[in-house]
Design a protein around this nucleic acid. Structure first.
Lengths: 154, 154
DNA sequence: TCTAATGTAACTACAATGGTTTCACGTAAT
DNA sequence: ATTACGTGAAACCATTGTAGTTACATTAGA
């Protein structure tokens, strides 16, 4: 399996919150950009709120960022939405045979590797902020199509 | 979600194959060490076979390693069993709204980060061989419990 | 008060995983 | 040849997790 879409959706949400006029980015509006259900968005803003990244209150339209995007790393978002469940990125096979030399030690032997592999992945996420992603988006918007995409007369 | 247990089970299987007398490590025997069903093991040895790591033939008990464990990296095993399905480690939310500046670019903006994060994780797996894991296991077997685990008279 | 938005619970649909049964086929020993 | 054992593969089931959906209580503000 793979890491939950909650993660990219949360990033998407944070960017929309940052570029929208206050009170504009309702869960309905965000859901229509993400192409999902408003409740899915509220679940995510709820998690972002519990992590201290946004402030969302019942009855008030649009959540408010509690930090500028440049101070929110992707790792914070990833952790806020619990993108990788409990037990870590790698699943282990439960209760191998304790009467077998391999069975009774395999988990202890593999665990350190699993942990450092997961850490390596998370460190990449830590090096990028949500503002970086937002920057990439405006860059993409400003892109000029190369000539071979232009209409021709041939 | 997390990465399939097929991965640790495959490592477990390879180690058993390497330390067992030829023809001894049947899918039944391996399954009893892993604590699962023999068919699960055969599915995995099948994948390891298609990846060229072992040779398993119908009717012949026990698969045979085609390489020494020291020449099999964890990354090879991970790829052999397709531990992370198609589409990569990170899921993306499908079809965001193309009429929204953020929606139509979010995937392109996040993809490079997802790819390098996944790569970082895989590079760790590439640095370890199955023989390293097997070595850790024998080390664990030889461990001497520290004093505070010893019976006392107090 | 009325409207609009959020928070939350509950339910559903769907997909993926792993376990299980079953059976055909291959090998090897008797 | 027959028998026993093991693998390969298909089919099916149970469980789990994710996301989508409905419904409703609650809150803010006009």
């Amino acid at each position: 399996m793979n890491i939950s879409t909650k993660f990219p959706v949360a990033v998407h949400t944070l960017i929309l919150l940052s570029i929208s006029q206050p009170g504009t980015a309702t869960s309905d509006m965000i859901a229509s950009s993400v192409n999902t259900n408003p409740v899915v968005i509220r679940r995510i803003t709820g998690m972002l709120g519990r992590a201290g990244l946004v402030e969302a209150r019942a009855g008030i339209a649009g959540a408010r960022l509690k930090k500028p995007l440049a101070e929110i790393t992707l790792l914070e978002v990833y952790k806020a939405v619990n993108a990788v469940g409990e037990g870590g990125l790698f699943a282990v096979h439960e209760s191998p045979n304790p009467n077998c030399e391999v069975g009774r030690n395999i988990q202890a032997a593999m665990n350190p590797i699993f942990i450092s592999a997961q850490r390596a992945m998370e460190q990449i996420l830590e090096q990028t902020t949500v503002a970086d992603v937002a920057g990439d988006i405006s860059q993409l918007e400003g892109i000029v199509l190369p000539d071979y995409f232009a209409p021709t007369n041939s």
